[in-house]
């Protein structure tokens, strides 16, 4: 597998105990199953990527003609939603099913349109990034939207208001970017480096530590961590040694 991401759904949160007996809050994500709907190639599109779709029941009347043509090209059933994810360089040249004579994708990473993607793409990873759409808060005030302090809470004050938004004679205008009330939520939010706490291949579940943006049953894009934390002491138990610190220690010992 050389795809770096998968589409999923937020199921809910719970907690688990690890081997040390410490409790961790986890978010349960249903990741996939996904299918590759199209492969973008360097030769044709100028970059390498895979367009993946979340396999979920879609009414055939909800699929318009251009989309059904797109799905028909790679011979996949209609999918709920699609995203493009990066493709890793060819790691294993296996998975060349010789059944199809034409071999739609000639790229060397062993992927082809119609391939299924499951949670097991994360089985070697420790961290993932999750992109979701945050919960909608409607038209929100400044205290909620921008974490303003608000006014005094007693003696006849208004306490959820913003106060002054600028001086009068100079500059006699409001600077652009002044934070004000407005629509809040329903934004794309990325959470990076969530530790994987468990993978359930039977139910396509991925358990990550911490919160994930969006409501329950909200769709998310899970991808391999772009910049995972540096391997250091305590990264994988107390026995791991930070190479940087170890070398520093060694040089300090030499000087003495």
């Amino acid at each position: 597998m050389a795809v770096t991401g998968i589409l999923g759904k937020k199921i809910g949160m719970t907690q688990v105990f690890d081997e040390k007996g410490e409790v961790h809050p986890i978010t349960v994500l249903q990741a996939g199953p996904c299918v590759i709907t199209q492969l973008k190639t360097l030769a044709k599109d100028g970059y390498e990527a895979a367009q993946i779709g979340l396999v979920e029941f879609v009414k055939s009347s909800k699929v318009n003609k251009p989309m059904s043509g797109h799905f028909g090209k790679s011979n996949v059933p209609p999918v709920k939603l699609m995203r493009e994810v990066a493709v890793e360089a060819a790691a294993a040249p296996a998975k060349t099913d010789g059944a199809e004579g034409e071999a739609p994708a000639a790229s060397g990473n062993g992927l082809k349109a119609g391939d299924r993607i499951l949670v097991d793409i994360f089985s070697d990873d420790k961290y993932v990034d999750v992109i979701g759409t945050s919960k909608g808060r409607g038209f929100a005030g400044v205290v909620r939207r921008h974490h303003f302090g608000g006014g005094p809470k007693a003696h006849g004050h208004m306490f959820q208001v913003q106060g002054s938004i600028g001086a009068s004679s100079f500059p006699s205008r409001v600077f652009p970017g002044q934070r004000m009330p407005g629509h809040f939520g329903v934004d794309q939010v990325t959470v990076r480096n969530l530790r994987i706490r468990g993978i359930d291949l039977e139910e396509n579940l991925l358990m990550v530590e911490g919160a994930v943006p969006g409501p329950r049953d909200g769709y998310v894009l899970i991808s391999k961590a772009k910049a995972p934390p540096r391997e250091r002491r305590g990264f994988a138990g107390a026995t791991t040694v930070d190479p940087l610190k170890a070398s520093k220690k060694a040089s300090a010992a030499k000087k003495k």
Binding site: I11, G12, T14, V16, V28, Q30, D200, E203, L205, R216
Partner: peptide, 14 residues
Amino acid sequence: SIHPVMQRLAEKLQ
């Protein structure tokens, strides 16, 4: 009500 997937997961972790 609890999500059916969460229900099954909870039974597994119990």
